[in-house]
C-alpha cells in the first residue's frame, strides 16, 4: 500500500481524489480489525499519539484514543480549557514541549481556525486536525464519506444535502471539499444569515428552501443548531428554524426513497431533525460513529507510515 505523503492532515481543502481514495480504502481494512473479536493490531507499536483538546469533545477524543489504542500506540490526552488559550502557554510552545517528549502524532482540537496549521509549521510531529474553529473537521467529513461509500458503493454523482448552520460548520466545509473532489453534488441549505458568502465558489449549490435542497437527494445531513445563534440575532427563534428548516419525516419524502439520514452529533432532537428520523431505518448516525474509529485508525496508520516509507 502506498502511504499518504503528507506530514499532517490539516483539512480536505486541496486534497486529491487519489489521496481521499487511499484513506477510504485503508479505512475499509481498519474496519475489519475494529469489528474483529480481538481489536488489536501492531501498526502503531512504539508510536505515541497525544490528544490535545482546547475544546470540549467526547466522541471525537474517544474515537481518536480508541483508534490509536487498537493499533498499539501509546496515548495521552491533554484537555486545556479554552479560556486559557489567550493566556497561559502558547500553542507553539505546548506543541514543542510535547514533541520533546517523543510524540509522533498530535491530534488537535482548537476553537480558532488555522490553529493546526500554525502548530504543524512549528513541530515535526504529524498534526491531525480534530476540528479548528469554524474551518474544518476533516476526519468527520472522511467518516461521513466512508459511511456513504459503504452504503451506496460510490460517491460519484450522488446528491448530498447539508442542512443547517453552514456559516459556523467546520463539518460542512470539510464535506464540501471532500465530497466535491470525489464527484458528488453538494447542496447546502439554511437561513441566509447562517450561509457564508460566496460558498458556491467552493463548489456547493446553495438553497434557502430546505425542500429544494432535499429533493431527490441520496443523503440528507443535519447540522447542530446552537441556541446562542438566536441570542446573537442570527435567528429570530429556534422555533421558526425548526418549522422552516427542520428535517422531518414529511420533508424526507422528497428525497430518494433510500436516502441516508446523517448527523455529526450531538443531535438536538426535535430542533434540526426529528427524533423519529434519528432513530429510524434510514438513519446511519450510529454507524457514523463506528466508521469514525476506522477512519481515524486509517489516518494514524497512513501518517505514521510516512517515515517508514521514506527510509525503506
Amino acid at each position: 500500500m502506498m502511504a499518504l505523503k503528507r506530514k499532517d492532515l490539516l483539512g480536505l481543502r486541496g486534497m486529491t481524489k487519489a489521496e481521499l481514495e487511499e484513506i477510504l480504502s485503508t479505512a475499509q481494512d481498519m474496519k475489519s480489525i475494529l469489528l474483529s473479536n480481538v481489536k488489536k493490531a501492531s501498526y502503531l507499536q512504539g508510536k505515541s499519539v497525544v490528544m490535545l483538546f482546547y475544546e470540549n469533545s467526547t466522541r471525537t477524543r474517544f474515537s481518536f484514543e480508541f483508534a490509536a489504542k487498537y493499533l498499539g500506540a501509546h496515548t495521552a490526552s491533554v484537555a486545556v480549557s479554552s479560556s486559557s488559550v489567550a493566556k497561559g502557554e502558547s500553542l507553539v510552545d505546548t506543541g514543542k514541549t510535547l514533541q520533546s517528549m517523543g510524540i509522533d502524532v498530535i491530534v488537535l482540537r482548537h476553537p480558532m481556525s488555522g490553529a493546526p496549521h500554525l502548530l504543524a509549521k512549528h513541530v515535526s510531529a504529524s498534526v491531525i486536525n480534530a476540528g479548528d474553529g469554524i474551518n474544518e473537521h476533516p476526519t468527520q467529513a472522511l467518516l461521513d464519506m466512508f459511511t456513504i461509500k459503504q452504503k451506496k458503493g460510490t460517491l460519484d454523482g450522488l446528491k448530498v444535502a447539508i442542512i443547517g448552520d453552514i456559516l459556523h460548520s467546520r463539518v460542512a466545509r470539510s464535506n464540501i471539499w471532500g465530497l466535491t473532489a470525489m464527484g458528488a453534488e453538494v447542496r447546502v441549505a439554511g437561513p441566509s444569515t447562517l450561509m457564508p458568502p460566496d460558498i458556491e465558489k467552493m463548489g456547493a449549490r446553495v438553497f434557502y428552501k430546505v425542500e429544494e435542497a432535499i429533493k431527490d437527494a441520496d443523503v440528507v445531513m443535519g447540522l447542530r443548531i446552537q441556541r446562542e445563534r438566536q441570542q446573537k440575532g442570527l435567528l429570530p427563534s429556534i422555533r421558526e428554524y425548526t418549522r422552516l428548516f427542520g428535517i422531518t419525516q414529511e420533508r424526507i419524502r422528497l428525497a430518494k426513497a433510500d436516502a441516508l439520514i446523517m448527523h455529526p452529533g450531538p443531535v438536538n432532537r426535535g430542533v434540526e431533525i426529528s427524533s423519529d428520523l434519528v432513530d429510524g431505518e434510514q438513519s446511519v448516525i450510529n454507524e457514523q460513529v463506528t466508521n469514525g474509529v476506522a477512519i481515524r485508525m486509517a489516518l494514524l496508520y497512513l501518517l505514521t507510515r510516512r517515515d517508514y516509507n521514506a527510509v525503506h
Binding site: 481543502r13 481556525s113 488555522g114 479548528d132 474553529g133 469554524i134 474551518n135 474544518e136 467546520r170 466545509r173 457564508p196 458568502p197 460566496d198 460558498i199 465558489k201 467552493m202
Partner: peptide
Amino acid sequence: YMSTVLGL
C-alpha cells in the same frame, strides 16, 4: 470568499 474558505 476567502473568509468562507479559511473559516475565519
